[in-house]
Design a protein around this nucleic acid. Sequence first.
DNA 1: TTCTAAGTTTAGAATTAGTCTCTCTTGCAT
DNA 2: ATGCAAGAGAGACTAATTCTAAACTTAGAA
Lengths: 149, 149
Amino acid sequence: MDRQEIIELLNLRGIQPSAQRVAIAQLVLGTDEHPTAEQVWQKASESLPVVSRATVYNTLNLLTENGLLRRHALKGVSSVFDGNPEAHHHFVDEETGELRDIPWDALEVSGLETLPDSEITGYMVVVRGRRRNPTTDKIAQRSRKEGAT
Amino acid sequence: MDRQEIIELLNLRGIQPSAQRVAIAQLVLGTDEHPTAEQVWQKASESLPVVSRATVYNTLNLLTENGLLRRHALKGVSSVFDGNPEAHHHFVDEETGELRDIPWDALEVSGLETLPDSEITGYMVVVRGRRRNPTTDKIAQRSRKEGAT
DNA sequence: TTCTAAGTTTAGAATTAGTCTCTCTTGCAT
DNA sequence: ATGCAAGAGAGACTAATTCTAAACTTAGAA
Ligand SMILES: [Mn+2]
Ligand SMILES: [Mn+2]
Ligand SMILES: [Zn+2]
Ligand SMILES: [Zn+2]
């Protein structure tokens, strides 16, 4: 994608296409790698005389909010511990951030055998969404805690 | 799970069952929640006169290495940016940590409609493994970069 | 018992990822 | 020219995690 296309993309969404924003957008929209903010900052530093980390984060967040980018937490430092080491899937509640288990047998994934050149050691479906009926759930939770039936 | 069971689990793997380890293991093996290390530390602090954060991290890592626990990076602070905002799946190379795209149509997930009480906003299959034929791949990559056929 | 080596825990320093705050600059509109 | 308002920058701050080095505990051996 060339500079001009990027500028139009930004203009379309009312984002002022500053030199920094164009350079950063071009870097991350023009690759199929999945760079960390730090990596984007390093590359951006090559083409721009000066960029601060804060600008890189601000721009990446801005582009994400505008749907041009997506942010994945799949590796990286912070994590959560799972007392069930068996294979199972997960539901991430986008409101609370809570992780809930989905039993392995509840979902089926097909097509894995067609992935080229890879030895699979495991997989998991990550479903994102919000719980419906939070009221019912809260009541159920309270009952459990209080030992009520 | 009671204290004694936990102690046996640890002994089985040659892990010396210190008071701290037993308390921490009991906390995290006895819940279907997915606590952060900080949350485990807070709970552990209630039942033990003194525990340091380092012990909690050491123990959680030890239990994870021994397959009693699993560690997920699904929410939390650190992330990676994806220039393709469309729905697709991901392959995580366990050797390099690299994330690679799997096209949406390459995999199919069934059973989602049966998830109770939840409104799904999106989902993704996360496959973990190692690439086979890294040599071939490197050649393929170079060819692509150089515009060779 | 007492000693000792190995294993474990600790507080705090260091590191890494990310956000926040405040200041400085720049591109216009008056 | 003057004055905003939006944007960008530096650096302080926070949070998650690991590292370090010293202190403590334990299981055996003597
Ligand atoms: Mn921001
Ligand atoms: Mn460790
Ligand atoms: Zn789980
Ligand atoms: Zn992707």
